[in-house]
Design a binder for these strands. Structure first.
Length: 273
DNA sequence: GTGACCACCTGGCCGC
DNA sequence: TGCGGCCAGGTGGTCA
């Protein structure tokens, strides 16, 4: 699924294709994808406008279109493609933006989990899904004091806490497994049992793992391949995620797969006691 | 306030 | 080969 590195890769790639293009028309084939506007209002507010820039907050892409912010969340399998006007629509393309130069931006989502919210840009940090997000690992405000405040009263498993986007934003199932392995933390450990060095390690390795993944263009696995022909290479650097049955790179113990609050979770039972 | 559970959705996989 | 059932999972809503 697209996590922060994959979304950042999509953002950087799309910037090369859609900036300053004028929207001539929009087709929406799955109405539930547009959450906070009627289809008519969504179209009326964007048609005739140009895409000024693309921002990213955690896993949210924000297309800045004149005075509006189009907040797109790819969820599980959302992807964007640039295609010529005349290319046939495939059945998983749910929103198509037509530009005046006869190119199109197409949002494709096999499972239809993705969402789009359209708000005024001035309200982006006042009244939008962005407001609830915690700090990204790259934010200097994310320190051990902040983590202690957020986690020290939580009994929920550390894996679940790190997936909570209101605490740290940008980590998803793949990268949480990788971070916990590097921290030698068991995914089921109650959040309130972490020590100061654990907070420091979570911050350090979250940053390290995400930075490397961004540099490698994200991770390409069965449930996610990037758009526009961009393929990530971080899957070659995964140490535990999807490695069930293979020896741990540190101690040689067989990597196990379990479930933590319903999420598939990979870990080394020896390194992550 | 917290945590558990469910719905959303469809392709892939497995067993029969 | 075809069918049914299960699994995958980020997020928001509901309920205890």
């Amino acid at each position: 699924m697209p996590e922060l590195p994959e979304v950042e890769t999509v953002r950087r790639t799309l910037e090369n294709y859609v900036l300053n293009k004028e929207i001539r028309d929009i087709d929406i084939f799955y109405n539930k994808m547009i959450r906070n506007q009627s289809i008519e209002a969504f179209r009326n507010q964007l048609i005739g406008k140009k895409i000024d820039r693309i921002e990213r907050y955690g896993k949210h892409l924000v297309f800045v279109i004149d005075e509006y912010a189009l907040i797109s969340h790819l969820r599980m399998e959302g992807k964007y493609f640039i295609k010529h006007l005349e290319e046939e629509r495939n059945k998983h393309e749910h929103v198509i933006f037509y530009f005046t130069d006869d190119s199109t931006l197409r949002y494709q989502d096999t499972r239809k989990f993705g969402t789009m919210d359209l708000i005024l840009y001035k309200d982006l940090h006042l009244n939008s899904p962005i407001v609830k997000l915690g700090y990204e690992p790259f934010n200097n405000l994310l320190d051990s004091k902040y983590l202690k405040q957020k986690l020290s009263k939580k009994t929920v498993a550390i894996k679940s806490a790190l997936l909570d986007q209101t605490i740290i934003t940008g980590l998803g199932n793949i990268y949480v497994d990788e971070v916990l392995f590097r921290c030698n933390l068991n995914p089921n450990m109650p959040s309130n049992q972490l020590k100061k060095k654990d907070y420091d390690n979570v911050i350090l390795y979250s940053k390290q793992v995400l930075e490397k993944a961004i540099n490698l263009g994200g991770t390409t696995i069965r449930s996610y391949t990037s758009s526009l022909g961009v393929t990530g290479r971080f899957q070659n650097d995964l140490l535990v995620h999807t490695k069930v049955g293979t020896p741990c790179v540190v101690c040689g113990t067989e990597i196990l797969k379990t479930k933590v609050n319903g999420r598939g979770t990979y870990y080394c039972p020896n390194c992550q006691k």
